[in-house]
Design a protein around this nucleic acid. Structure first.
Lengths: 369, 369
DNA sequence: AATGGCGGCGGAAACGTTTGCCGGTCCGCT
DNA sequence: AGCGGACCGGCAAACGTTTCCGCCGCCATT
């Protein structure tokens, strides 16, 4: 038969196990387990002995074994489009902070807009047996969804997901922030306001464009067709869109963009052609990524709070994982948006009240006077 | 005694296990395991049967169980300073791509420069029993290192780590790129070149500053003390440093910065005071973060290749994990740096050859002429 | 034709937990 | 004093793998 086989072929010397602790404390491993997990049926003095023993042998519970037997990994999947898109690191950061606070770890993956990659990404997450996945890609492929839903997997989507049990959705209220943006421009005196959208196969891009049109018509402002341009949610798209706007007979005095990268492209496009922002044209972005504070001039933009988004995502995931949490039945979470005014918006050229000019124009042109 | 207990209290119905496959294929679980792991002693026809069975029951190996018994998690830890610092997402991206390619997963965590957070981060990584950790924080606390080294843990550091077995170091060759930067400026005619360093308690910041001084003296150029300013590797630090440079009697005609965020701060500082870049002052950054392409003007900077860094980190980690890899004995990896010329550098004001002016000056001022 | 070697497969132990079940102790009630 | 029950701790099964060891049969050699 041969005696017990111990630790052959292991990579490193194993660390202390629950058995070592039990031996040292003079209790059974069951008691150690219960102590570690805070189960109240352990007598205080025993618990004390166990904790001491744990400290002495430097015991760290083995997560793999835990997950294996309990069937839960305390791991949350977070799927983003691309981690190098500046919006996402901030989301990741918030998400991670909150997850750790609540005793979870985060398994991050980016799809890079590649379906094959997305496919393997999800497979990897399943293999690591995550307890739930937040899909924060703002536009996700349907077959992938199907695959996950089949396993009755707790999931969270942004904007819209399939209408199925165990699917929770974070509804971003694009209208709110965009209305603020339009009203801000209108209050400054702008009437001719253009909009550069995202790629229109993305639902969130359509939602943003429609919110813009709605806000304009609420104010009785009309938008000629050539003032609505489809962009790509990238800087290049913003530059190209700017170029086509510049060729128009009637230039708009303000441009609202479907995301910040587009707005930054607009800034570059205008800079190349020696138009000043905000003196010649006002520009507003969307997302409030970190970068907006660093461009020149700092960008006025609509903020979708990462904090809110992350917090809601985690709450929604936990609702799917732990059935007796207070929010377990909730299936929708509202995410607010709001305008953040920086220095890329001002009065339209010509309409500038003399008094306000010295106060409100950008520091750069003020200094030049 | 009671019969076998099955699946009480599990969160979800378990997926097919190796036993289901074995039963379906009419072989033992050992054979299934060998087939899945590509061990060659399995007869081709049996392997065929096993693969079919796997497909039929939709078997996915359980990573937890695998890791538990094999002692290896195929998980790599990646510790960065802060994920929202634009340099890191790009590193993370490369690292993840390469890791997945080589059959590993990545467990990311950011320290946010907080020792307590770092401490728990490492503890979490140990609990998840990662196979190795890459510490890419460019300046790490010593006690943390000690803690990890005690467990003979495969680790990779940047710039410098403790001199111990199982520690591998990625040596960034700051000198190379900074010499290129200085020579580029000198070639354009600059003689008075200032340097804004990072916080000098960071070794990498000191290394960069020293590389600058060395490159200057190689060209016979002297640097007055007030032209070396300690910054903070942040935009604010760059702005402040610019302000103090502006108060000097003799302004430098070019500023080299210890990282890109500082350089962007310099851009803002100069913009506020109506100095033109590059016409009045040339600016060079370091890191080549994504952002540098989006600021105005696009920043000339020294690139430390993320690709190189990530590839070397993974190779070094694997060297520590799999002892019979070709690089297993190597303990140092060289990371090259090189200058990327964009539009924030030009001739010093006044020294500009008339012919070159129209070609080399920034597009903005050219258009104004 | 018997024997030795070897290739290939199966049995079963081990990894480190969680947890159902059971047995012991002690207290309070009758 | 005897009994019931609450409480608490230990035993051992189970989670899903990997891998050691042993067995069986086939082929080649003597």
């Amino acid at each position: 038969m041969g005696g017990p086989r111990k630790n052959t072929n292991r990579l490193r010397a194993p660390s202390a196990s629950i058995r070592d602790v039990a031996q040292r404390a003079g209790v059974s491993i069951a008691t150690v387990s219960r102590t570690v997990n805070g189960i109240s049926t352990v007598a205080p003095d025993l618990a004390e002995r166990v904790w001491n023993a744990i400290r002495e042998v430097g015991y760290v519970p083995n997560t793999q074994a835990r997950a294996l037997v309990s069937g839960r990994s305390r791991l949350l999947g977070l799927v983003v489009s691309e981690i190098t898109n500046p919006f996402f690191p901030e989301l990741v950061q918030e998400f991670e902070n909150l997850a750790v606070e609540q005793g979870y770890e985060v398994f991050i993956g980016s799809t890079n807009y590649d379906p094959a990659r997305t496919e393997t990404l999800v497979r990897r997450m399943l293999q690591r047996s995550v307890d739930g996945v937040a899909i924060m890609t703002f536009g996700i492929e349907q077959e992938l969804i199907q695959k996950l839903v089949d396993r009755a997997f707790p999931m969270v989507f942004v904007d819209s997901g399939p209408d199925m049990p165990n699917i929770r959705v974070l509804k971003v209220d694009y209208g709110e922030g965009i209305r603020e943006a339009v009203q801000h421009l209108a209050a400054l005196g702008h009437r001719k306001i253009a909009f550069i959208s995202g790629p229109l196969h993305m639902r969130s891009a359509v939602a943003r464009r429609d919110a813009f049109l709605k806000s304009m018509s609420e104010l009785g402002l009309t938008v000629p067709g050539e003032h609505i341009i489809e962009g790509t949610h990238t800087m290049e798209g913003g530059i190209r869109a700017t170029e086509s706007l510049l060729q128009l007979g009637e230039m708009p005095t303000a441009i609202v963009c479907s995301n910040d990268m587009t707005a930054i492209g607009v800034l570059h496009g205008l800079h190349r052609t020696t138009h000043e922002v905000p003196d010649d044209v006002s520009v507003i972005g969307f997302d409030d990524i970190h970068l907006t504070q660093f461009v020149l001039p700092p960008l006025t933009t609509v903020q979708m709070s990462c904090k809110h988004l992350a917090a809601a995502a985690i709450q929604a995931l936990r609702a799917g994982i732990e059935p007796d949490l207070p929010h377990a039945q909730q299936t929708e979470w509202q995410i607010p948006t709001r305008l953040v005014v920086r220095q890329s918006t001002s009065f339209p050229r010509g309409s500038l009240p003399a008094l306000a000019k010295t106060r409100l124009t950008s520091r750069r042109s003020a200094a030049k006077v």
